[in-house]
């Protein structure tokens, strides 16, 4: 198992990725300490019609935090897609079938590797957020949104794992080409639905969405939110495990093709 994990770690250029992330984190920390939100620098302070002042450095760095969350989400998806794609390309599965390994070990490794990636990127995002918010200016206008983003980080990574739980069986059992076709079909359908909604639906409901009222709702519904926080990861893990069991049982019965 350890060897397989290391193979995938090398496949996604793990060492390089760790170095880049580590350096980015250190640089960001230094940058944040030098430019805290509380420091008023002429030329970077913006004022809106209500007279509220916004430090643009804070706003700029906040986008960085958002990017880290999105990169993390992308990396979780890349971890299962890229590694499976490379395995298929390099005919690794055929080679593994000749080794004294249990067949389900290969499937288990793919699931574990994706889960580890999710854990690592969730941790990186949390560290990033801690560094950002420690030096945010007093009354920073985007702080509520930033807090909302932190609350959404766990559901986002849960969604990434659920996505992996749905896609990995396809990728392993049907192959790269068929999976690409199916995924393209699903994405196109979603895009068409969104387009249809924008063209013919009631977009006014979205435009008039009251963020402040939503934040108030969050503050007054502690119990439901905590309950969701507990249940969401548990349900995700159960579904993820079920997906593994189903894929593993089908994988054992599957004959590995000569070109796999």
């Amino acid at each position: 198992m350890g060897g397989l994990l290391y193979k995938d770690f090398v496949a996604i250029r793990g060492k390089k990725l760790i170095m880049i992330t580590g350096i980015a984190l250190v640089l960001f920390t230094i940058l944040r300490v030098i430019f805290p939100g509380s420091r008023e620098i002429p030329g970077v302070m913006a004022k809106n019609d209500d007279g509220e002042v916004l430090n643009m450095i804070d706003a700029f760095l906040w986008y960085g935090e958002f990017c880290v969350l999105m990169i993390g989400y992308g990396q979780v998806s890349a971890s299962w897609y890229r590694t499976s794609e490379l395995d298929e390309k390099n005919r690794v599965r055929n080679y593994f079938s000749s080794l004294p390994l249990r067949k389900q070990t290969y499937v288990a490794e793919k699931y574990i590797f994706t889960a580890i990636t999710a854990y690592v990127w969730f941790s990186v995002y949390m560290i990033w957020h801690i560094v950002f918010s420690a030096f945010a200016g007093e009354g920073f206008l985007l702080m509520d949104v930033s807090d909302l983003l932190v609350g959404m980080a766990l559901p986002i990574f849960c969604f990434a794992l659920l996505q992996a739980a749905l896609n990995m069986p396809m990728l392993l059992l049907l192959g790269r080409e068929k999976t690409k076709l199916i995924l393209t079909g699903i994405v196109m359908t979603i895009c068409m639905c969104v387009l249809g909604f924008v063209l013919f639906g009631d977009v006014g409901a979205l435009a008039n969405w009251d963020v402040k009222a939503f934040m108030e709702w969050i503050k007054t519904h502690d119990f439901e939110i905590v309950l969701t926080t507990i249940i969401a990861p548990l349900i995700t893990l159960v579904l993820y495990y079920l997906s593994y069991r189903i894929t593993a049982s089908l994988w054992v019965k599957k004959e590995v093709a000569a070109d796999e």
Binding site: Y119, S123, L154, I230, L234
Partner: peptide, 8 residues
């Protein structure tokens, strides 16, 4: 649950 997930 949160402790286990955010145990970094």
């Amino acid at each position: 649950v949160c402790g286990a997930i955010g145990s970094f």
